[in-house]
Design a protein around this nucleic acid. Sequence first.
DNA 1: CGTCTGCTTGAGCCTTGTCAAGAAACGTGG
DNA 2: CCACGTTTCTTGACAAGGCTCAAGCAGACG
Lengths: 236, 236
Amino acid sequence: MLSQLIDLTPVEQRALEKLEERQRPVRRGAVLQRENEGCSELYILRKGLMMSYVLLDDGSRQILRFLFPGDMLGVSSAVYQEAPETLAALSDCVVCPFDRSALSDLMVEHPRLAAMVLVYSQIERVALTDRLAALGRTSAKARVAALLIELRNRLRRVDKSVTTAFTLGLTQEEIGDATGLTAVHVNRMLRQLEEEGLIAREAGRVTLRDERALTRAANYINRYEGLDLGWLPRTR
Amino acid sequence: MLSQLIDLTPVEQRALEKLEERQRPVRRGAVLQRENEGCSELYILRKGLMMSYVLLDDGSRQILRFLFPGDMLGVSSAVYQEAPETLAALSDCVVCPFDRSALSDLMVEHPRLAAMVLVYSQIERVALTDRLAALGRTSAKARVAALLIELRNRLRRVDKSVTTAFTLGLTQEEIGDATGLTAVHVNRMLRQLEEEGLIAREAGRVTLRDERALTRAANYINRYEGLDLGWLPRTR
DNA sequence: CGTCTGCTTGAGCCTTGTCAAGAAACGTGG
DNA sequence: CCACGTTTCTTGACAAGGCTCAAGCAGACG
């Protein structure tokens, strides 16, 4: 992920690889980090699909973000005594845990990587504000459409062969928890998108049939494009 | 802001002050940075209240964040060729503009300040996820209550004399654009909170009368507390 | 003094949620 | 490979929270 945005020097590459020295498998459904529990580790997701979520006290869940291979997990938790969100695996995953001190060392020794971590966290921030605007100001149909496009785009970053069809490894309840809807209503929206010819569905796979109309319905922006990183520090 | 979280060395303090060398007044209602326009400057807000928002293509607005003295503005815009959000002044303000390269220099020369910028952006991120959960999963009343508490808490960070009463310099339409509601419904919710004795209102001032009940109704968490910054790099 | 912006309130509607029940898919142990 | 239990999907009927439209009012400001 970090390495996809700029060309790294061999030294920087080695520093990043050092973060990924250790590997840990995580079973589907397992929780890597629980909200309100202490935790001083960060992770890089190597394989699989994860999510972060919070539980409200009426028991409802808000999924904050889906996490893909290459993503850095738990940065926000590292800043707090107790994790502000739960990290859970949606499929069998592999993560590379590393200590907060490793992040600290990285920032001292590789300012350009430090800047990249900041850039990365800003991309994530803007993606979150997009979702905030979606939940605050768009219809149920638009939110579901936006979720589908976003999932496809992020899958494509990992696997270039993904084009318009993909397996969405999510239940409709999970889609609802991400978009602020009920599972029942998600079902209705998917059906509606299907009836209108915007998507097709079969056996857990979704095909985006009219991407233009879908993007328009969703008012979606790909936040991994349009970056300007020319101002980053030079390599030491 | 950055300086409130940890003790800085004199050298670090001077580096921060350098960012605030220049000052620029911004009139109430003025726009400092417009969505989709180029922009290579960042700012530190010195005085006044600002907001960041996006406009959707049906013309509706989502306010993303309110900005208080000490906040760093435009970090996310610095990462993109075009600003992802608009920055506008809600009252007469003073900002200190500085160039992206100054941020870059800071990260090279003061790793601990670089880490603080990252910490700061993570606090903001978590506050955004709280709002995401509020919009996705809580009632109109809870959202309005959460906004009131958050405003009070952030005002108090700037001015310790603020306790339970404060002037909220927002129209009900702005509250609506922040909480994903219409101005009309915000009005009804404020009235309801008042009738239930949770708040009092007079002439633009709000008093939190039953903070415990309000916090419970809002399920609000103060994200400027509970930090753990022991792992930050040592000063060089 | 007139205009404009913001606040307030009511009536009716619409999007989304709730509840319920059956069908389909999935996973597991025998 | 089958049988069973469990999860997930689907659909309908109904309820409700929040939106729209509309109108009156109050205060700010030129």
